[in-house]
């Protein structure tokens, strides 16, 4: 029987396997996708923060989407230091102007881009942040200067709602 019409049989086998694979994929996808961030997690998209009480040289940390966000009111010295760094010295070149819309306020995710620890304020060789987990040093603009982290600390989407309120997200 198989000798009689091999091409027809091959076609049927291939078609059956193909439908089988599609079927398995269709069944597997909901089981895989259920692990992705769910609707209630995504709904917590933005946070408003009152920054009126933050003095120059201080940092506050707020939670946004379960992650810490650093909001630092920088001193004039820190701004000068951040601006005078030459691009060629940076592992991940970004101008300070592009990271801080208002140079006095630096808003960024307080998460080391290496493996996700929270770096410590006012520490490290560049007067910015130091990650205690694996020794990454960040400068006063939150840019990676030394250590295993590949990129600068991420700047989230944020805006000044008014002079005293920052909306993150």
């Amino acid at each position: 029987m198989s000798d009689k019409n091999p091409k027809r049989r091959d076609f049927l086998f291939t078609a059956t396997y193909a439908i089988g694979v599609v079927g398995i994929g269709a069944v597997a996808w909901p089981l895989i996708d259920q692990m992705n961030p769910d609707a209630s997690v995504k709904a917590l998209a933005s946070t408003e923060v009152d920054v009126s009480s933050v003095e120059p040289g201080n940092t506050i940390t707020v939670l946004w989407r379960g992650k810490p966000v650093f909001i630092r009111r920088r001193t004039q010295d820190e701004i000068t230091e951040a601006k005078k760094v030459k691009m060629e010295e940076l592992k991940h070149p970004e101008k300070d102007e592009d990271r801080a819309k208002d140079p006095e306020w630096l808003v960024m995710l307080g998460i080391c881009t290496h493996l996700g620890c929270v770096p410590l304020n006012d520490k490290g060789d560049y007067n910015g942040w130091f990650c205690p987990c694996h020794g990454s040093h960040y400068d006063t603009s939150g840019r990676i200067r030394k250590g295993p982290a590949p990129t600068n600390m991420e700047v989230p989407k944020y805006e000044f709602v008014n002079a005293n309120t920052i909306k993150i997200g």
Binding site: R65, G66, L115
Partner: peptide
């Protein structure tokens, strides 16, 4: 976060492992 080292799809994999934007 070790998985975030994978180029291109790393961040997506980590969010999938977490079921959110951080361990929660």
């Amino acid at each position: 976060n070790l998985f975030s080292a994978i180029p291109l799809i790393g961040e997506g994999i980590v969010a999938w492992l977490w079921g959110g934007f951080a361990v929660d």
